[in-house]
Design a protein around this nucleic acid. Structure first.
Lengths: 199, 199
DNA sequence: CTGTATCTACCTACTAGTAGGTAGATTACA
DNA sequence: TGTAATCTACCTACTAGTAGGTAGATACAG
């Protein structure tokens, strides 16, 4: 057995599943207790309050995103590959239903109702992702590997918005292919040398 | 006094404000009772259950959208004007904080946790809006007044997704100008004859 | 007198969170 | 090595407060 019990991780995983299903107010400690197989009070042992739990979850979600993007850039792929891998990751998450929507996109939509401690973590996620995408678009513009009409920051924000909106549409239609249907043409427009029907 | 009391409308208006703030589970009858200035039980007279209330709200929201789009097309404006008016409407709603996010975009994000009666209304809204935008892009493609690379349906879905995602980003950043920053360049790309810096 | 709209007063179920305790593993130290 | 102290992880049982919802009385208009 590990030095640290994995119950805390089980609780976080369950909380994430509940949050992506129905947001911050869409689940209770009782719900988590049931799926993890412990009592409500035991959750409080690991996470004193619901705010602590969700704050930890979102903070770790951002850490994972940072680590994921760093890993993604290990072999120095070009901007088109980076964007394709990013959207491909989400297409996979939606198709296999493992994470049918981004935790932070969902929480951002109900931001005014979130405890401030959680809201600040959600904002941090958006700032990181926006910054990362902006750097990708900057490089793409320098190299000429991306078709960037507006400022890189603006292109990055529009790209992120489309990805998040596509997640919501996929959910609304209950069709896991909607996400890819929206994102594929968008990527094609951004990559000048893309040859339709090739690859 | 009107034939119908306006208390029901007051309740619906309050519910809408609460829903755009925090979603379906982000408010209670007690919250509504307080802002409307009646007792909790009186809400049940107008809307027997919370499901009835939100179902009525979303159904009416769709009716208003249908009426709004019909009105928008009264003077037979071209596709570019239609898209500009649509996004301009939302830019205004966000800037004056009257409706900082689309009710159905928010509810769609938490769709799996919604009562089925509400979920079906939300899906209907997406289908209507998607259909309307598809017709706009079809006409734009025929007339050559819009730059449509992919199929009109796909362009419409991408456009809608970007609008919804931009609402979420605006909320995440707490910056009412984010929405316009994202949408303005997207409109410019879609309208071939657009001259930057003019108008 | 009827129907609409509202009220007070209440219900049951559930919310997050607390109090206090137990079993077992780990550590400190004589 | 034995044992006492401490820690981790969980438990039962409880709290105050809130959720959506109901029953029945009252006010009042046509």
């Amino acid at each position: 057995m590990d030095r640290l019990s994995n119950t805390a991780d089980d609780i976080l995983a369950a909380a994430q599943r509940f949050i992506v299903a129905g947001g911050y107010n869409g689940f209770s400690y009782a719900d988590i207790a049931e799926v993890v197989g412990i009592r409500k009070a035991s959750i409080h042992h690991h996470f004193p309050s619901k705010v602590d739990l969700v704050q930890t979850l979102v903070r770790r979600y951002l850490e994972d995103a940072v680590a994921g993007m760093t890993e993604l850039e290990r072999n120095a792929p070009g901007p088109p590959e980076l964007l394709r891998t990013y959207t491909g990751f989400w297409a996979q998450c939606i198709e296999d239903a493992s994470r049918p929507i981004c935790v932070c996109a969902l929480l951002a939509s109900e931001l005014p109702a979130l405890p401030p401690e959680v809201a600040v973590e959600v904002r941090a996620y958006f700032q990181f992702l926006s910054g990362w995408l902006t750097r990708v678009f900057e490089r793409g513009a320098e190299q000429g590997t991306l078709t960037v009409a507006a400022a890189p920051r603006v292109e990055a924000e529009a790209f992120m918005a489309t990805v998040h909106g596509a997640m919501i549409s996929a959910r609304a239609y209950g069709d896991v292919l909607t996400f890819g249907m929206i994102l594929a043409p968008m990527l094609q427009k951004l990559v000048p040398e893309a040859i339709p029907g090739k690859g």
